[in-house]
Amino acid sequence: MTDHDTIPVLAHDLVKRFGDFVAVDHINLEARAGEVVGFLGPNGSGKSTTIRMLCGLLRPSAGQALVAGFDVARKPEQVRRRIGYMSQKFSLYNDLQVIENIRFFAGMYDVPASVLHERTEWVLYMAGLVGRESTITGTLPGGWKQRLALGCAVLHRPSILFLDEPTSGVDPISRRRFWELIHAMAAEGVTVLVTTHYMDEAEYCNRLVLIFQGRIVASGSPTELKQQAMAGELLLIECDRLGPALDLLQQVPDARHVALFGKALHVVVPDAQTGIPRLRAVLSAHGIAVSRIEPIRASLEDVFVSLTAQLSGQRT
């Protein structure tokens, strides 16, 4: 267990280069005990690379990271005893039985014999695999596999948990169960760093870190992020002829982040009170019938889409 005064995860100007390519570019990060920190970012933005450096699997090219108070580059073994890690790929042995996987990883983590039975039972219980101990792991459905992998990663009761896309390819109900487990652990003081592509999951995090091309571009609680990133108010517009409407709104000076969301448009305006009548007028003037226009709460997806759109525009 970590002392109360050491910060479980602390990264300072962490850099990872692969040859000339900078995969992680001066990342600063801090996670406190019991916090669930979500990493969001498009494919290839450097999420896995960051987590791997924090686990001591990759050596940072520059910068420093302290996990459980130990420098990951200098004392990776000390770090490893204190963390649990689920890699992005499913990485239990598919050809072993459920119970054999549990025993194997318990052995790797040196789980004391006195608590082995209890921990094993606990993993089986939380993965919903009681009575299926001798099932071959590879034949389990995705959701069960992921819970078993989580169980195997926390057999030694680590105080810090790194989860790299733990729920990819898992059905919504299993995902929800998985997140309940994460929150139960966080409630006991475990620090969780988790990457995900699911926006609904991001809402479950205490804090979010948005990574884009190796850099942190925004961070904060989900609520903070939505307010910050969306300086202004988000409007939903339903109308006919979406295409021309989109083109039209992009010409309006104050309207920003015009984007198509399903069968509607999202637009950000500085103020809803004055914005709504103005946009309605513009659209009607061009013969577009507006059936609905109202302020809505921004979803994280809006934040995510608008931020990455903005940044892509700047960088390329």
């Binding site: 490893r80 990485s91 790797m108 983590y109």
Partner: peptide, 13 residues
């Protein structure tokens, strides 16, 4: 290749 090596490497083995 299958990724189990990565999982073993984060254990104290």
């Amino acid at each position: 290749e299958i990724g189990t090596l990565e999982q073993i490497m984060v254990t104290p083995i």
